[in-house]
Every structure is written in structure tokens, then in C-alpha cells.
Design a protein around this nucleic acid. Sequence first.
DNA 1: TGTAAATAGGATAAAATTATCCGAAATAAA
DNA 2: TTTATTTCGGATAATTTTATCCTATTTACA
Lengths: 144, 144
Amino acid sequence: MFSKACEYGIKASIFIALNSYQEKRVSLKAIAKEVASPEAFTAKILQDLVRHEIINSVKGAHGGFEIDKNKISSIKLEQIVYAIDGNKIYSGCGLGLEICNELHPCPVHEKFKSIRSELKNMLETTNLEELALDIKSGISFLKI
Amino acid sequence: MFSKACEYGIKASIFIALNSYQEKRVSLKAIAKEVASPEAFTAKILQDLVRHEIINSVKGAHGGFEIDKNKISSIKLEQIVYAIDGNKIYSGCGLGLEICNELHPCPVHEKFKSIRSELKNMLETTNLEELALDIKSGISFLKI
DNA sequence: TGTAAATAGGATAAAATTATCCGAAATAAA
DNA sequence: TTTATTTCGGATAATTTTATCCTATTTACA
Ligand code: FES
Ligand code: FES
């Protein structure tokens, strides 16, 4: 469904958010360990998120990644997925036609459309805050 | 969402079904042309579907692919997807945890689960016959 | 019986995704 | 000012997915 890059990016963002609530900046190393992702690959993904202004990075000693505390509840999963995987998830045709189009639909267009739009809706209405809180309270987990 | 292999496999199956209603066997070449897929790659996918007994192949001159007319309406998309992509689509964790599990859920488990089960339900209730009929009546298209 | 038309299947190649490595740049603290 | 720490960014490698090529096998038909 999502690419590995996107999976890592989402989990990393949640972990950063969690720490940002406590004013703690987290290092790449800590993030990769916590979400069980390859360090160097994770670095690339975080750079992407920084460029898209979803997370913030600070270079040098005592540097690391953080998210503006006031922004956390307004950051939607959709923004993270879009920054990493683009919009192909909810704009592309399920059977690979060049464009998904009502006027020239593929055989599964109608059925696919509704699932895709639910996915889109889910991503657009889920924010980082709620996901971070579930981790904090031990309801959900980032690895294994 | 689906792999390219799966997309080609679904479209090829629809085209074969369509022709099987008219007792017409179709060649690899005709299939690849009709669904705009690479010929040799499509051959591998069709072999997979043959091994899974979803379609039937006949070697030699006047050979080709066909589907038992009486089976078409009972072949579900799910069988084709499973034959080609396995069951990772609806059993895997959306964020890549080793297993998707209520007892050890990832942060998006609850939200992801419902979308995934709708996808599963859609694949399990959609059969080749209805898809083939939509192509026949010009409601939907297999390429471009 | 021979030949042309097909699928089967193994080997290989190309492309995309995932992953690693290393030096440069920035920053805090000694 | 030097050093340790940390992100940045380019180059490269490994793996997976997608795609191609070539030969063997099967079959219809002249
Ligand atoms: S045309 Fe295929 S999903 Fe819309
Ligand atoms: S544990 Fe991640 S989707 Fe179920």
C-alpha cells in the first residue's frame, strides 16, 4: 500500500512528535533505532520531510529533528504520504490506465474509487497528535 | 496498490473471459496488444494464472488462452490478486510491522483495518463476468 | 512427415526501490 | 580555536520488480 520510505517516514514523524511535546530534539540514530529502520535510508526520508517543512532539523552538536509543538495536531498523514510517495495513491488508476477518468474508466474504476477515497479521507483526517498520543499511552507500537 | 503484474493479470483475465463467451481462444500476442502490456512479461503472469487454474492454456497451433465459460461468473478478483501478489495486500501491516495484530497494533491499525477489509470485500465480491460485460458494452476500457 | 504457430520455461537485462558509505558543512562546548 | 557531534548531500551498492530473449515443447494442418 505505502512504500517502505513512506512507512519509515510516518513512524519517524510520530516519534519526533512524541518527543517534541517534551521539548526533546531527537537524533537520526535514536529515530532509526526506535522505528527499526535503516539509518542512512531514514536520513534521506527525513531530509525530504524537512524540505517539505513537515519537520525541522538542527545541524551540529545537540542537533536533531523536531516538530513545532503547535503544528503537531494540524499535520495530517496525507502531508507525509504526499511528501514521500506523491499523490499516486489516490489519483492513479487501480489498473494502471494512464489517467483515472470517469469518461474513460477501467473495469474496476467505480469500485476502486470508493476505496481510494476512503483511504484519502482517512489520511486527510488523521493527524500526528492522535497517533503520538496512542504511542504514549501504550495503545500502539512503532516496531516489531 | 496492486503490482504491475497484478494489473496486467486482471486485465488479461477480463479479455480472455470476454472471448471465451464466444468460444474464442486468444493468443498471448492478442492479449498483450489489447491490454497494452509487455508480451514476454505478460506470458509469465499468464503462466502463473494457469498454474493456479484460473485460466486454461492450449499449446501449439491454434492454441491460446481461455476460461471455462461456466466458471467465469464464479472467478473473483481476489483469486487473481492472490495468485499473483499473494495475500500481503490484506494481511500485511500498513506501517510494515512484522505482523498485523490487534494485540500489538501499529499507530494506524484501527483506521487502516477498515479500509483494508473493504478492499478485501470488494475483491471477494467482484467477479470476472461483470467486468467482462462492462467492457463488452463499452462502459469500461482495458487500455490507454 | 514436415512445417508453422503457439505456449513453457530458463537465463538474462533494465529499471525502480531500498539501502549503504563517505566527506562536507554546521554547531555546541571544551 | 579545536574537537566532537550531528545533519546534508552526492556517489554507489544491493535487492526487488519489471521486462526481454532464446530455446524447447506441443499441436494443427498441409
Ligand atoms: S480508471 Fe481505473 S480506477 Fe479510475
Ligand atoms: S498492525 Fe499495522 S495495520 Fe495492523
